[in-house]
């Protein structure tokens, strides 16, 4: 997912650079008090940890593997602002020292992997936790959903960037399906690993899990529910409008209409890896159908999360 130079056009990359600088700068300012002293070496060690974790390829299904992004995990462990800074450092050094991700695409990569995964992961985490009492189970369930969706959101972000400044020639809806679908699978892997890591840390050093600080603090205030339901509404509205945008996009409609010729075979193989491809193939050709598809994807993720945790909990104390 490290975008190379030239994949997205110059203007978009530049714009992304400005936005990323703003985002990372904001995170730096937010975390300044904590980063000042003791957290600098800590953040460096955690950055090295995230880097090493990203080298860890995990099997998603037999024959298919993905690697961790770690944004949601970092946010749950360190808090969102420090996490943005930490993952940014990882992304910057990957570009500078390892030629992984283009220098001109640094802004894009920072947005996708350092800012969006981290913040969306944190946001989902808080959101899922909001209605429940603070408990280990709630933290782990929320971690799963947050990590899974953060990967999907990051993939969608990539498609948005591709839509704005990608070199053309391919229809966007196709790219969206491919990216969101494959990343839902990768995201589930990310979810599992994130949960296991958070669970292990929660067991040995619960004080190190920022997102669970309310578990041990005696009577620390509960999450401000009202604010989170407002944010949840905003998120839902964004999701719906994004889906509508994607589906009302002429490219998308054209794709459905254009199911003939050589392009069809190629597309067939391209999206075969996507679980959502079934929904497309089932003839959900209108915007409403796609919204349903997206919603189903979300619901399935949530359900999977809960299911996993009831099972895991019964078997062993994670």
């Amino acid at each position: 997912m490290h975008i190379p130079d030239g994949f997205i056009d110059g203007t978009t990359s530049l714009g992304a650079g400005v936005i990323a600088a703003g985002g990372v700068g904001g995170a730096l300012r937010q975390s300044a008090a904590r980063l000042k002293d003791r957290q600098i070496p800590l953040a460096g060690l955690v950055a090295a940890f995230v880097f090493v974790l990203q080298m860890l390829n995990f099997p998603v299904l037999p024959g298919m593997s993905g690697h961790l992004l770690g944004g949601a995990l970092a946010a749950i462990l360190m808090g969102p602002s420090v996490a943005v800074v930490v993952v940014s450092v990882v992304i910057i050094l990957q570009a500078m020292l390892f030629a992984d991700g283009g220098v001109s695409a640094l802004g894009l990569n920072l947005i996708n992997m350092a800012v969006v995964t981290t913040l969306s992961g944190w946001f989902m985490f808080r959101l899922v936790r909001a209605p429940f009492r603070p408990s280990r189970r709630a933290v782990l369930g929320a971690s799963f959903v947050a990590a899974t969706l953060s990967v999907v959101v990051s993939a969608v972000m990539f498609v948005v960037e591709y839509a704005i400044g990608g070199v053309g020639g391919v229809n966007l809806f196709n790219v969206l399906l491919l990216m969101a679908g494959s990343h839902l699978l990768i995201g589930i892997g990310e979810g599992f690993i994130t949960v296991a890591v958070v669970g292990a840390v929660l067991q040995a050093r619960p004080d190190l899990v920022f997102g669970a600080s309310d578990l041990r603090a005696e009577g620390s205030p509960r999450l401000p529910m009202k604010r989170f339901w407002i944010l949840a509404g905003v998120a839902a509205a964004m999701l719906v409008s994004l889906t509508v945008f994607a589906s009302s996009n002429p490219d998308g409609l054209q794709w459905v209409a254009e199911q003939t010729g050589l392009a069809q075979e190629a597309q067939g193989s391209l999206i075969a890896t996507s679980p959502l491809s079934n929904y497309g193939a089932a003839g959900l050709s209108d915007g409403a159908g796609r919204i349903v598809a997206a919603a189903v994807g979300m619901v399935v993720t949530f359900l999977l999360g809960w299911l996993t945790f009831t099972i895991l909990r019964r078997r062993s104390p994670v």
């Binding site: 974790l53 998603v60 669970g199 840390v201």
Partner: peptide, 17 residues
């Protein structure tokens, strides 16, 4: 497959600590 990565991830947790 990913339902087998738990041990791996638990060690990642230890690594974080």
């Amino acid at each position: 497959a990913f339902w087998q990565v738990k041990a791996l991830a638990t060690s990642a947790g230890a690594l974080f600590i």
